[in-house]
Write a protein that binds this DNA or RNA. Structure first.
Lengths: 156, 156
DNA sequence: GCTTGAAATTTTAAGCTTGAAGTAATTTGC
DNA sequence: GCAAATTACTTCAAGCTTAAAATTTCAAGC
């Protein structure tokens, strides 16, 4: 085990701090743009879109706890968003399995149809917003972030 | 001007979409961890930290509109956060210039002291959370994101 | 001066988010 | 079986966030 000199460690931290700040600003800029477009074009919000995207990937449905851990948000948060989606007829809670504490959440037909329209637009928006990132950089960055996130799986 | 075939464009969008999703997940994971630590160690929140960080950089103070555009959040949002920081004695609104619509917001002495403690811890946390990103990757990624964000300045 | 318009900020209503407390159902250990 | 612990979810209070409307102040043109 060899430790790097203190000055090196300090330098690394500064560089990583810079990286984090830029990453956060980029993410917030893109998120703001997506939120605006979802509102204008589909009269919906980013959290609703996120929930619908998660449900679209799993046609058999998800538990509330599955949604919250997948989306990295709290349990109570998902309750509210699903409530609103249910009242809009886009999502259903099915209380059909043996465990009466849980309910399987699925997209309704209307929900699937609306999500497909949004997903197509969304993919185009991202392509447009990230047009400045070259193809090579895109792949390299995606690979870096994949290894990063896998090193974080199940943390805490 | 030569256009790429449609299939190529479609592929690029998918790749960029993947990049965006991973970047968003990484950012949310880190943000959640920072929020938790700020709460535990300093009994404060990420938005308050962000406002204090912006003010620390500009000892002469900032206007409310300067804060909101720098932090990429709405005007009304900043009003509430600054209100709470003022009530905690960490920040001041100085109504001392000619234009009585504006007020210069500055950190109090207590605010500067508290921020310095938080900033030191924060830098260490980021170093720790991004420890899995190699030094070379850190620099490359930071450079990519810099060029990306500069291509977005003043958009909208 | 007075009006019109623009600028900076605050207020408002609705929705998002969290952490903690509460409720109901299930599982575990005796 | 049954008490205790655990699990899944909802409710709650506080704070964050947005977009839109309202307020206050300033600037320009007459």
């Amino acid at each position: 085990m060899v430790s790097a000199p203190l000055s090196d460690i300090s330098h690394d931290n500064k560089e990583r701090l810079r990286l984090w700040i830029r990453m956060l600003r980029a993410a917030r800029t893109i998120e703001a743009e997506l939120r605006e477009r979802l509102r204008q074009e589909f009269d919906t919000t980013l959290p609703r879109f996120d929930v619908m995207a998660a449900l679209y990937r799993t046609p058999d449905g998800m538990l509330m706890s599955g949604l919250s851990s997948f989306l990295l948000v709290s349990n109570g948060n998902v309750t509210g968003i699903v409530d609103r989606l249910v009242s809009e007829g886009l999502v259903e809670r099915a209380r059909r399995n043996g465990d009466r504490r849980t309910s399987m959440v699925t997209l309704t037909e209307a929900g699937r149809a609306q999500f497909e329209a949004m997903a197509a637009a969304h993919e185009g928006w991202i392509g447009e917003l990230l047009a400045g990132v070259g193809d090579e950089d895109t792949k390299r960055l995606a690979a870096m972030l994949k290894s990063f996130s896998s090193s974080w799986e199940g943390h805490e």
